[in-house]
């Protein structure tokens, strides 16, 4: 089953790319097929990295580093340069190890899903729930987005699809109260995973971030030792604002990991590299579609492959 999932992921990532033979992917081939490493090669490499949303800071750091390294490594061929760059990026991405993540959860735990509007929190919860159910865990989806129209109904559908339990209050109810109830019931059961859906919010709203802090406070207090994972959901199409977002959520809540969604499109999700570099928060999972099994663990090799392919 895992094998099947992985091949589906690569297929998805590739098919996205092949359908969009844009100038960009054409250009990438060109760069690494040149004869010599010229200034032009460096310029184009820069363009590739920027085009993947890695951002100026990270791009310049990578290119500078590469320029130094190829001297000591005696690399003269753009093809070799590509392999070297891949290796470096993978190494870099792997320096941020996943401590606990959704694939090695204990018997009892709580996951808080947070992020700006429309990134894919609710959908990712549904997919994650299905995976955990597949591992035989008891899963409860907690409808703490009491704000958005039909957010509760949406999560309920995912609970049905994934065979999870479901806890909700009325629309407009206090989100922390739903979380509170759900933890009491988890403790009574003694095992299982609560996955908490929170309303999408832009990090610039002080009051909404305070509400989220309160949810986390209540969770930690009531969890009383039960592991709590806070995951930020980032849309792969996001540009440089992703860093600001991640910083704000990290400062407010302390993040344990990132879920990078919508990698089935043509966006490369390079912003996640910048976030991981700057905040030291690992990318734990990726989403690549709207179906229930369109999610997998983050693999640096596959990600970098897709980024430079």
């Amino acid at each position: 089953m895992l094998q099947k999932k992985k091949s589906k992921l690569l297929k998805r990532l590739r098919s996205g790319l092949s359908k969009s033979r844009t100038n960009l992917s054409y250009q990438i081939k060109n760069v690494f097929q040149r004869e010599k490493i010229t200034d032009e090669v460096w310029d184009d490499l820069e363009a590739i990295l920027i085009g993947a949303d890695i951002g100026m800071d990270a791009t310049l750091a990578i290119v500078d580093d590469l320029k130094k390294q190829i001297k000591t490594e005696h690399i003269f061929d753009p093809g070799e340069l590509k392999e070297f760059l891949k290796k470096e990026l993978i190494k870099e991405l792997n320096t941020c190890p996943n401590k606990i993540n959704p694939s090695n959860l204990g018997d009892i735990s709580i996951i808080l899903m947070v992020g700006v509007n429309g990134t894919g929190k609710t959908t990712s919860i549904g997919k994650l729930a299905a995976q955990l159910r597949g591992e035989g865990k008891s899963v409860t989806l907690v409808a703490a987005d009491t704000f958005r129209a039909a957010a509760i109904e949406q999560l309920q559908k995912w609970a049905e699809r994934s065979g999870s339990n479901f806890i909700k209050h009325q629309r407009g109810a206090d989100a922390a109260a739903v979380v509170f109830d759900a933890i009491q019931s988890l403790r009574a059961k003694g095992s299982g995973v609560n996955i908490v859906d929170t309303a999408g919010r832009l990090h610039t709203y002080v009051n909404l971030m305070e509400e989220l802090k309160k949810i986390k406070r209540v969770t930690l207090r009531e969890a009383d030792g039960i592991p709590v994972l806070t995951l930020l959901v980032i849309d792969a199409t996001t540009g440089q604002n992703g860093i600001v977002q991640a910083k704000a959520f990290h400062e407010a809540l302390g993040l344990d990991g990132l879920i990078l969604t919508k990698l089935d499109g043509t966006a490369k999700g390079g912003i996640a590299i910048a976030i991981q570099q700057q905040l030291g928060v690992p990318i734990t999972m990726i989403g690549f579609g709207e179906e229930i099994d369109d999610m997998g663990p983050f693999k640096a090799e596959d990600f970098v492959e897709a980024l430079l392919d």
Binding site: G242, T266, K268
Partner: peptide, 10 residues
Amino acid sequence: DSMTGQDAVN
């Protein structure tokens, strides 16, 4: 979405 990055053109 105004937060869209480089992919907006595609």
